[in-house]
């Protein structure tokens, strides 16, 4: 499944209410739970947290891509959170993160997981596009921006 097919209003939250890294991770997993995309919150949260403990997935320019593998999902899942105010996510450049793309994949679907991550990397190369996402009014606008509509 292509990244674009994963983007739906129900898995987008803007703005995130959390103010720290641990809170953001919990809130992103909760988005999936609230959207009916996962059942086992704890298993998914543990997978994401354990990967994050190895090294932060906070990249440059306000982007963070927390991800992990968990048998609690049967196919690739995406949650997208936006924090216009910025949150300290221990990013590479030390700057606050604003766009959070969280991916969870089942252990036996590494191919789609890798391709979705690669698509996110391409997507966020445009600083103008990232600014537009950060300034979006609501989830609908975020989805429209990503689909290029």
């Amino acid at each position: 499944m292509a990244f674009i097919d994963l983007v739906q209003e129900k898995i987008v939250r803007i703005p995130l209410v959390s103010t720290d890294k641990a809170g953001v991770l919990r809130e992103l997993v909760q988005i999936l739970k609230d959207a009916g995309e996962i059942e086992d919150y704890d298993a998914v949260f543990t997978a994401i947290r354990e990967r994050e403990e190895k090294l932060s997935t906070g990249l440059e320019s306000g982007i963070a891509v927390p991800h992990g593998k968990s048998a609690a999902v049967s196919k690739l899942k995406l949650a997208l959170g936006i924090a216009p105010q910025g949150i300290d996510f221990a990013s590479i450049d030390g700057q606050p993160s604003r766009l959070f793309f969280m991916l969870v994949a089942p252990p036996n679907q590494s191919g789609p997981h890798v391709e979705a991550l690669a698509e996110i990397v391409k997507l966020v190369q445009s600083k103008a596009f990232c600014r537009a996402l950060t300034g979006a009014r609501d989830a609908r606008e975020v989805v429209e921006l990503i689909r290029g509509e």
Binding site: D5, E115, E119, I146
Partner: peptide, 14 residues
């Protein structure tokens, strides 16, 4: 091919 397609140039699939 993927059902929903973006018009953004950044998106393409292999």
């Amino acid at each position: 091919l993927a059902r929903i397609r973006s018009r953004r140039d950044e998106f393409y699939d292999e």
